[in-house]
Design a protein around this nucleic acid. Structure first.
Lengths: 220, 220
DNA sequence: ATATATTTTTAGACTAACCTAAAAATAATT
DNA sequence: AATTATTTTTAGGTTAGTCTAAAAATATAT
């Protein structure tokens, strides 16, 4: 069954919300995620429930059915593969690709995605370090810790970012921080929880707690 | 100004009709091209006229304004560039790419098309031999003759096809006829206007008039 | 546990894009 | 030129997806 772009966006939103909060997604949370009104969400939830993509009971919030979850995962797969294409092949930077991938993910063709995946050499992670589900919907799992939870003396490499807004990504680029950058914690400041870090064993920088929370590190 | 997918499809349809008949496009012709009803077409024509993309007078047919023509040309550019990508990079065959490109052409991003064009090395023709307008909307012009208008003894190479249906393209592939194939006319049969041709100086085949009309040849 | 605040749903309306059936305009034919 | 056929437009309706405002349900706080 083929869904409209709007329906696909709802499934993705519900998936994302469930991912970060574990429990069922509320109408308001979905409305906020999609920048729309709660009334519109209720409307759409009825339709998606009718089509068996979500489990919906009035006033109880929603969860994805197996079918819905599969659809959402496929969308994430498409989105992230296109991001890899845009960065690796077309030389976009990581802060430029989100909006374009948001459109490309709705192109309908399994064959296209299969071939794109092969063309890109079956990447496991996208330009922001997010895992790309394989064609069966399996995500690669990786040990990672937010920099904010690490301690003085520890070292690791940047493997992902939690925040995807271009402002944030551009800020990292301006500090020459990218995926793979080695980060060592030199000092932690208790009062504002900022950190003094060394980057690639070369240069030192202060990182605010807010930023550190959004940097995912693989310890080494 | 950014148009809906439906609006874009109307502009492209009008462009194509104008291209093959020179005179203004009729409501019925557009309806046929888009596989929709005449009433729906009238509806949309009013909206497109309102937005200044077409010149429309009741009962008089339509032509594109400069603005509309530019939009249509950009769409054709996008469609054909994506076709090149699909064939050259993802190894699709020429009979598989139309429907996917039909979706991809509506992705909104000038930067994307600029980069795609560069990535593909600024191709001048698509996998069916159709010219790709450059970013200023200029088409490369080429001398070409339908095989059906050529005579016994003449030779040339296939540079394009008029018909794009996958059945037709697959039929050509089954005869090992592709862009670049050398075709020499050995005999013409007056009664049914079929031709006996030699392909790549190697193998002989009978080509019906119907097929010959759709093969565009550069004489040599 | 009752009152208040928040969340969610319903009611009713709007727009874009489509449809069929009927009416009006244009084109073709005798 | 008048009749017939064809094309185009209008009238009225439908669906998907959105909205605001009001009502109903649930959650929070005193």
């Amino acid at each position: 069954m083929t869904l409209s772009t709007a329906e696909e966006n709802y499934l993705k939103a519900i998936f994302k919300i469930s991912e970060r909060s574990e429990k069922s997604a509320s109408t308001n949370a979905i409305a906020k995620q999609l920048n729309t009104s709660a009334a519109s969400v209720t409307d759409m939830l009825k339709r998606l429930a009718e089509k068996k993509f979500i489990n919906y009971e009035k006033y109880k919030g929603v969860t994805l059915t197996a079918e819905g979850s599969k659809k959402a995962t496929q969308l994430i797969r498409k989105h992230r593969l296109w991001e890899v294409f845009l960065v690796k092949k077309l030389r976009f930077t990581w802060d430029q690709v989100h909006d374009i991938a948001e459109q490309l993910e709705h192109i309908q063709s399994n064959e296209l995605i299969m071939r794109l995946d092969a063309y890109l050499d079956y990447p496991k992670f996208d330009p922001h370090g997010d895992p790309i589900p394989n064609s069966d919907g399996k995500f690669t799992i990786r040990n990672q810790t937010p920099l904010s939870e690490m301690h003085k003396g520890q070292t690791g490499s940047l493997v992902g970012v939690k925040e995807h807004h271009s402002d944030f990504l551009q800020y990292l680029s301006s500090l020459n921080i990218k995926l793979g950058t080695i980060i060592s914690i030199k000092e932690t400041m208790p009062f504002d929880r900022s950190m003094l870090v060394e980057l690639d064993h070369k240069r030192e920088n202060v990182i605010t707690h807010q930023v550190a929370q959004n940097l995912l590190i693989k310890k080494m």
